[in-house]
Amino acid sequence: MTPKEELVSLWSFLYLKLPHKVLTYFHGSHIFLPVMYYLIFFTGFWGNLFVISVVASKGKRGGRLVDIFVVNLAVADLIFVLTLPLWAISASQNNYWNFGAASNLLCKLSSYIISVNRFSNIFFLTCMSIDRYLVIVKLMDSRHLRSSWCVIGTCISLWMTSLVLGIPSLVYRGVDPEGSQSCLDDKSSTFYQVTNLIMTLLTFVFPVLIIVLCYGTIIMHLNKHCSAVGNPRAEARRRHSLKMVLCIILAFVVSWLPYNIFKTFSIISHLFQPTIGCETQNVLDNGLVVSCCMAFFNSCVNPVIYFVLDNHFRKRAGMLYHSCKGTSNVLQSFNSSTTFTNGSENFGTSGGRSQFQI
Rank of each mutant, 00 (worst) to 15 (best):
C183K: 06
V194R: 04
P177H: 01
V171Y: 00
P177T: 00
W149Q: 07
D185G: 10
C155G: 09
I130F: 03
I152Q: 05
L184H: 14
L170Y: 10
F206R: 09
G153A: 14
V205I: 15
R143P: 01
D185R: 13
I198Y: 00
D131G: 05
S148F: 02
C183G: 11
F206K: 10
R173N: 15
M160G: 00
D185C: 10
S129Q: 04
N196C: 10
S129T: 01
S147T: 12
L197M: 12
M128E: 11
D186N: 09
V137L: 10
L202E: 04
P207Y: 01
W159G: 00
L145I: 08
D185N: 15
C150L: 06
R132A: 01
H144I: 10
D186H: 07
I152E: 03
Q193L: 13
L163Q: 02
V151A: 02
T190S: 08
D186T: 03
S188A: 01
Q193A: 08
L163H: 02
M160Q: 04
I156V: 15
R146C: 06
R143D: 02
S157D: 04
F204R: 10
V135Y: 07
C155T: 13
V164L: 15
T195S: 10
R173M: 15
L165W: 13
V194T: 07
K187Q: 12
L139Q: 11
V137N: 11
F191C: 05
L163P: 03
L170H: 05
R173H: 14
P207W: 03
W149E: 12
R173Y: 13
V164M: 15
S188Q: 10
V164N: 14
R143V: 03
L184T: 15
S188N: 12
W159M: 04
Q181D: 00
V194A: 07
F206S: 03
I136G: 13
G179H: 01
G179D: 06
T161W: 05
T190H: 10
D141N: 09
N196Q: 15
L201M: 13
G166E: 07
M128P: 07
P168W: 05
F204Q: 11
R132P: 09
V151I: 09
S162D: 01
D176W: 02
L139V: 08
M160H: 08
L145P: 00
